[in-house]
């Protein structure tokens, strides 16, 4: 068979947009939808400072370690909560909603690749988490004390790798979630386990050794470890470390987050449905 060529179209400009341009086109639309939803926007932006205000009110009176340590703990906890709710849960429900309203199916008919669609869909969640961390840091600085910053690279790694892993897990949970309403059920167990084993709600060193070893391999505990290293310079074993040692100590939690990201990406690529199940 001979392939035919397109008829001459002098009015057409033909140049494939870069992946970044395609992603931004969809991400901008998702951001527009987020801004239009006032309730979601308020929850996304006001939750962080309010949480800091509430938690600091009962942490500060017992701040034996000093206000700097409290500030670091608050910021780490804030990131953990933001990753769980604005990352994991939010992206699970977004993926399910877009699938149920047949938007995902529509997007497969265009030039966006599936990976680009998922990245674009994650951009508003990442923007919200970033805003929460920044606003939370400001609130912590005003209400408690400016948090210490021993290794900014590890803090950024905690944010970026933590978001990637939790976003991926949120989308992987969408595989077994039929409706937005049922996301409240399907996310319940992973959400509870992630929070319990994160070290933010229950100290890991109070757990039995075997359980602690498991917890250290969960994504939110890894985020917590990276944040503690990056902000306070305290390693998981409780020792204070210098800048160089903090990179070495941060390698394991970073690898844990990378491994969870790979697992989530594999599940999403193999099992995620792009249209409602018949």
């Amino acid at each position: 068979m001979s392939a035919t060529t397109a008829p001459a179209r002098p009015d057409l400009v033909e140049q494939r947009p870069s992946p970044a341009r395609r992603v931004w086109a969809l991400a901008r639309l998702e951001l527009t939808l987020l801004v239009r939803n006032r309730t979601a926007l308020f929850n996304a932006l006001a939750l962080a400072p309010l949480t800091v205000l509430a938690v600091s009110s009962f942490l500060l009176p017992d701040a034996a370690e000093g206000r700097g340590a409290v500030a670091a703990t608050l910021l780490g906890t804030l990131l953990v909560f933001a990753l769980v709710f604005a990352g994991y849960y939010n992206l699970c429900t977004t993926a399910v909603a877009r699938r149920e309203e047949l938007m995902l199916k529509r997007l497969t008919t265009g030039e966006l690749t599936r990976g680009e669609v998922l990245v674009a869909m994650s951009v508003p969640a990442f923007a919200v988490i970033l805003a929460q961390v920044v606003l939370g840091a400001v609130a912590v600085a005003v209400l408690v004390e400016a948090p210490p910053l021993r290794n900014p690279v590890l803090v950024v790694l905690a944010l970026v790798l933590g978001f990637t892993a939790l976003a991926g897990l949120g989308m992987a949970t969408a595989i077994v979630t039929r409706t937005v309403e049922s996301a409240q059920i399907t996310t319940l167990l992973p959400l509870g386990a992630l929070m319990l084993l994160s070290g933010s709600t229950f100290p890991l060193d109070l757990m039995p050794d075997a359980m602690c070893a498991v917890a250290e391999r969960t994504p939110l505990a890894a985020v917590n470890q990276l944040m503690t290293l990056g902000l306070s310079g305290i390693a998981p074993d409780g020792d204070a470390v210098g800048l160089r040692e903090s990179f070495a100590a941060g390698a394991q939690p970073a690898l844990v987050l990378f491994a969870w990201t790979v697992l989530a990406a594999y599940l999403v690529q193999k099992r995620m449905s792009w249209e409602p199940r018949r």
């Binding site: 179209r9 009015d11 400009v13 033909e14 140049q15 947009p17 341009r21 086109a25 030039e111």
Partner: peptide, 9 residues
């Protein structure tokens, strides 16, 4: 904005 071909139509 995601398409290769752009026209004024």
């Amino acid at each position: 904005a995601t398409l290769s071909r752009r026209s004024d139509e």
